[in-house]
Amino acid sequence: MQGVVKVNSALNMRSGPGSNYGVIGTLRNNDKVEIIKEVDGWYEIRFNGKVGSASKSYITIVN
C-alpha cells in the first residue's frame, strides 16, 4: 500500500510506533512512502530504504 505525507513542514520518522521512540529520519510534504502495516495509530513505513514509523494522521493512502 502506498501513502503520501501531508504536513506543513516536516514529519519525524521514528524507530517505533510512538513519540517516545528515537527519530531516524524526516519526511517532507508530498513524500511518497510504502505502508507496511498499522500499529496503534501509527504506520510502519518504508522510505528511502529505511523502515520506521510515522503517525497515520499525516499520511494519506493512495491507490
Rank of each mutant, 00 (worst) to 15 (best):
M1L: 13
M1A: 10
M1Q: 11
M1D: 06
M1K: 12
M1S: 10
M1T: 11
M1N: 09
M1C: 15
Q2G: 07
Q2S: 11
Q2R: 12
Q2I: 15
Q2C: 15
Q2T: 13
Q2N: 10
Q2M: 15
Q2P: 09
G3L: 05
G3E: 02
G3H: 02
G3A: 07
G3P: 02
G3M: 04
G3V: 05
G3F: 06
V4Y: 07
V4I: 13
V4T: 08
V4N: 03
V4K: 06
V4R: 09
V4D: 02
V5I: 08
V5M: 04
V5Q: 01
K6H: 12
K6W: 05
K6R: 14
K6Y: 07
K6Q: 11
K6P: 01
K6G: 05
K6E: 06
K6M: 10
K6C: 14
K6L: 08
K6F: 07
V7Y: 07
V7K: 10
V7D: 03
V7M: 04
N8Y: 10
N8M: 11
N8H: 13
N8C: 15
N8I: 12
S9R: 14
S9L: 11
S9G: 15
S9N: 12
S9H: 14
S9I: 12
S9M: 11
A10I: 15
A10E: 13
A10T: 14
A10D: 10
A10R: 14
A10Q: 13
L11V: 15
L11A: 11
L11I: 15
L11M: 11
L11C: 14
N12A: 15
N12I: 14
N12K: 14
N12P: 15
N12L: 14
N12Y: 14
M13A: 03
M13E: 01
M13V: 15
M13I: 15
M13L: 13
M13K: 01
M13C: 09
M13D: 00
M13S: 01
M13Y: 06
R14H: 15
R14F: 14
R14C: 08
R14L: 11
R14G: 02
R14W: 09
S15H: 05
S15A: 13
S15P: 02
S15V: 07
S15D: 10
S15L: 08
G16V: 02
G16Y: 02
G16E: 02
G16L: 03
G16Q: 02
G16R: 03
P17D: 03
P17M: 05
P17H: 04
P17V: 03
P17R: 04
G18M: 01
G18L: 01
G18E: 03
G18C: 07
G18R: 00
G18K: 02
G18N: 05
G18A: 04
S19L: 15
S19I: 14
S19M: 15
S19N: 14
N20E: 13
N20V: 08
N20A: 10
N20I: 09
N20C: 13
Y21K: 03
Y21H: 08
Y21S: 03
Y21R: 03
G22I: 12
G22Q: 14
G22T: 13
G22H: 13
V23D: 02
V23H: 04
V23P: 05
V23K: 07
V23E: 04
I24D: 00
I24N: 03
I24Q: 02
G25D: 12
G25W: 06
G25E: 11
G25R: 04
G25Y: 07
T26S: 09
T26N: 05
T26E: 10
T26G: 02
T26R: 10
T26W: 09
T26C: 13
L27F: 01
L27P: 01
L27N: 00
L27D: 00
L27Q: 00
R28V: 10
R28I: 09
R28P: 01
R28M: 12
R28L: 11
R28G: 07
R28N: 11
N29K: 09
N29A: 09
N29F: 08
N29G: 06
N29S: 08
N29E: 07
N29L: 09
N30D: 10
N30V: 02
N30C: 13
N30Y: 08
N30W: 09
N30G: 15
D31F: 06
D31E: 07
D31W: 05
D31R: 03
D31A: 08
D31K: 03
D31L: 04
K32I: 15
K32S: 09
K32N: 09
K32L: 15
V33M: 04
V33I: 07
V33H: 01
V33S: 01
V33F: 05
V33R: 00
V33E: 01
V33A: 01
E34T: 11
E34N: 06
E34W: 14
E34Q: 10
E34R: 06
I35H: 01
I35V: 11
I35F: 03
I35W: 02
I35G: 01
I35R: 00
I35D: 00
I35T: 01
I35K: 00
I35L: 04
I35P: 01
I36V: 09
I36S: 03
I36F: 08
I36G: 02
I36Y: 07
I36C: 07
I36Q: 04
I36M: 10
I36H: 03
K37R: 14
K37E: 07
K37S: 14
K37T: 10
E38R: 04
E38I: 07
E38Y: 06
E38K: 04
E38W: 06
E38G: 04
E38T: 05
E38V: 08
E38H: 05
V39R: 07
V39W: 11
V39I: 12
V39L: 10
V39E: 09
V39G: 05
D40G: 12
D40W: 07
D40K: 09
D40Q: 09
D40V: 05
D40Y: 08
D40S: 09
G41A: 06
G41K: 05
G41N: 08
G41V: 05
G41S: 07
G41L: 06
G41T: 06
G41Y: 05
W42I: 00
W42Q: 01
W42Y: 10
W42N: 01
W42V: 01
Y43L: 06
Y43N: 00
E44Y: 12
E44T: 12
E44S: 06
E44Q: 12
E44G: 03
E44I: 15
I45D: 00
I45T: 00
I45K: 00
I45C: 04
I45L: 08
I45R: 00
R46T: 08
R46Q: 08
R46Y: 11
R46C: 12
R46M: 12
R46K: 11
R46H: 07
F47N: 01
F47Q: 02
F47C: 04
F47K: 03
F47A: 07
F47P: 00
F47W: 10
N48G: 10
N48W: 07
N48Y: 07
N48I: 05
G49N: 09
G49I: 04
G49Y: 05
G49R: 05
G49M: 06
K50V: 14
K50M: 14
K50H: 09
K50D: 06
K50P: 02
K50C: 10
K50F: 10
K50G: 06
V51K: 09
V51Y: 10
V51Q: 10
V51A: 07
V51T: 11
G52M: 04
G52Q: 02
G52V: 04
G52F: 04
G52W: 04
S53I: 10
S53E: 02
S53T: 10
S53G: 08
S53H: 15
S53F: 15
S53K: 04
S53R: 05
S53D: 03
A54P: 02
A54I: 15
A54V: 15
A54D: 02
A54M: 07
S55F: 12
S55M: 15
S55A: 13
S55K: 15
S55V: 12
S55D: 15
S55Y: 13
K56S: 11
K56C: 09
K56E: 04
K56Y: 04
K56L: 06
K56A: 12
K56I: 09
S57A: 14
S57Q: 15
S57D: 14
S57M: 14
S57F: 14
S57I: 14
S57V: 13
S57G: 11
S57K: 15
Y58L: 08
Y58S: 11
Y58E: 09
Y58P: 02
I59A: 00
I59V: 07
I59S: 00
I59W: 01
T60A: 11
T60W: 14
T60P: 06
T60E: 14
T60Q: 14
T60G: 06
I61F: 06
I61G: 03
I61M: 08
I61K: 07
I61D: 03
I61Y: 04
I61T: 06
I61P: 09
I61W: 04
I61E: 04
V62R: 06
V62Q: 09
V62C: 13
V62P: 07
V62G: 07
V62W: 07
V62E: 10
V62F: 09
N63V: 12
N63D: 13
N63Y: 11
N63W: 11
N63C: 13
N63F: 11
N63M: 12
